[in-house]
Nucleic acid binder design. Structure first.
Lengths: 159, 159
DNA sequence: AGCCGATAGTTGACACGTCACTCAAAACGT
DNA sequence: ACGTTTTGAGTGACGTGTCAACTATCGGCT
């Protein structure tokens, strides 16, 4: 539409800086909390959520990538690190011999069960308790709008 | 307050997942865009913004940390990498011989001037164009609320 | 002057993430 | 059945970020 006006308006700039601040501090605060309480990192936590939500406590690498929204390569690296700490274990797949299952171990299950309540409390404290009902609804809607815009990015929707 | 109810409600969970998605995809999309258009990374861009907004085109490492909200150590690493690519240059400080100035080079200035318009357009496209006026205002207010909650985190405000 | 704690900055180790590449197995077309 | 293409996953290199340890200087105190 407009290729002119190269930068943002003052008010847009304020909002954008706020976004940058929150995007920097919120994950950092949650990570500190989680790490201090349970020794898990946020990526550790996400992987364990994915695995424990699966009925068998195991997922193919690709499905774990799906569940987390990560690239398979990232999953592979993360699983390697977690395997070294005994949180998960790799097992080959019989039906598709290229494939691999990632299993949550007892230690992994114990770790996430110990970590989850405090993590949820932290999320509530920093986000949900900070917003009143109306603002929360608008915040959610805004995130949905931005998601929408993002998904139009690589799609050939209508053009 | 409440140590019960360990996890989030369904609607909170939906919102939280939306947040995680946006937090993952939005910076990634902007980074791709910026990288493709100018060869700069988002951290490169932030550093160059800080330096070029300063009258002399230079800042002490600590002030640059202030401007970006980063740790000094992170600034140091980032500056080292950028120095290797000729975007900035380190210079000792006469008054405080412990100190160091980071100067933007001509190449750095050229790079950010080339990159800024497209980057701003990307931010507008993905964020500001995606939100109508009302929602934008609420979004901004929500970010302010969360910021507030975050800043209470390490403060001994009233307790 | 001489000591001492605070401050500015760097460094190294390690976790995290992406990209391009590789390899093996599966799926497919003929 | 055969060769080709596609897919599942792992790897190495490198940029990014944090934390703890280190060096050098500053500033204040006696």
């Amino acid at each position: 539409m407009d290729t002119e006006d190269p930068w943002l308006s003052d008010s847009q700039q304020r909002t954008w800086r706020r976004w940058l601040t929150v995007e920097r501090l919120l994950p950092a605060a949650l990570a500190r909390d989680l790490q201090a309480g349970s020794g898990l990192s946020l990526p550790d936590f996400e992987v364990l959520v994915g695995l424990t939500e699966s009925p068998d406590g195991r997922l193919r690498v690709g499905d774990l990538a799906q569940a987390t929204g990560w690239e398979r390569s990232r999953v592979s690296h993360q699983v390697t690190r977690m395997e070294n700490r005994g949180l998960v274990r790799r097992r080959g797949c019989a039906e598709d011999r290229r494939g691999a299952f990632v299993h949550v171990t007892d230690a992994g299950r114990a770790a996430i069960e110990a970590a989850a309540p405090a993590h949820a409390r932290a999320v509530r404290r920093l986000v949900f308790d900070a917003l009143d009902a109306e603002r929360l609804e608008a915040f959610d809607a805004a995130l949905a709008d931005i998601s929408e815009a993002l998904s139009r990015e690589k799609d050939p929707v209508d053009r």
